[in-house]
Design a protein around this nucleic acid. Structure first.
Lengths: 158, 158
DNA sequence: TGATTGTTTGACTATTTTTGACTATTAATT
DNA sequence: AATTAATAGTCAAAAATAGTCAAACAATCA
């Protein structure tokens, strides 16, 4: 169900910059409880995944999902670096890497390397420490990408 | 039993690049306990044998087995993985990365990302712990470089 | 045959999703 | 202004999955 609602909203977002819904209507459409919509939004439309969400209650209330717009790769990297902050969970970190891959800022191999580096199992097991270590690592990686020319093999003298 | 389930999954994988199952369904199909499926997967669908496994718990959960292609450069990577062992200093780790770059096994960007991840300043400050963390990270990265998934569609949110 | 290795089982744990009761906010009506 | 209606948000319990681990059992090896 979550996946279906997510797919529906993303499809609309392929055409548009943002989408505005009435929570109860979508819940009815998919025959689920209204709070399911909140669950979808909280788990699938996070800032790490590149979305902003606004809402209003009361009569004429709505939920609006907005795709975060960036100018270029550099802007995206800077935005992500801000989002990372000085602590980040495994899940959020992986969302960030995934987003960079989807936006063609990093290659699949680079994404894999970075994803591996975000994995919980590599760290100490102390949640607070790990989230700090992870944010240091990811942030430094992204800072590096800012100053790096895109992909070139050393022997590729083309 | 293990052999039968293995054969079943491999047969499906002859037709497809990947297979997605619901653990309890397969267990029912073969009249065994669900954890038997984990055993099959852990013993027969390892990365060394050319398979990648992903899963999700909870509602709509699944286990997905993906065929991967073993890449060239295996020997070099395997050698490096051995060298790394379960503890490695910053200096040695950086040498390993440098060597991979010089041998054209990784790109400059990849090298930079990996070098960043080896840097002492990112870790806890406890030498023994850091060397262990670093080796875990570098080793896992190299293991990942050995395999490649077949044409996974990217960002297809339709 | 005794030791070793591989398989099966199930109790317990971990994760993710679904649900609904209760709360908070805003707009409309009195 | 106060009250009521119409929204959306929160939170925790329940349900629906998958994972782990060790004990029991089976097969194979020396």
């Amino acid at each position: 169900m979550t996946d279906i609602i997510e797919a529906y909203l993303k499809k609309v977002l392929q055409q548009q910059e943002q989408v505005e819904i009435r929570r109860s209507e979508i819940a009815q459409l998919f025959d689920c409880v209204p709070s399911q919509i909140n669950y979808v939004i909280n788990t699938r439309f996070t800032i790490q995944k590149g979305y902003l969400v606004e809402s209003k209650r009361g009569g004429g209330g709505y939920i609006r999902i907005i795709k975060v717009q960036v100018l270029d790769d550099l802007d995206m990297l800077n935005t992500m670096i801000e989002i990372i902050g000085d602590s980040i969970t495994e899940k959020d970190a992986k969302s960030v890497v995934q987003k960079l891959y989807e936006d063609d800022i990093i290659t699949k191999r680079e994404a894999k390397l970075m994803l591996v580096a975000m994995d919980k199992s590599l760290y100490t097991g102390e949640r607070v420490i790990d989230n700090r270590l992870r944010s240091n690592l990811l942030r430094t990686m992204l800072v590096n990408l800012k100053y790096e020319e895109p992909n070139k093999r050393k022997a590729d003298h083309s």
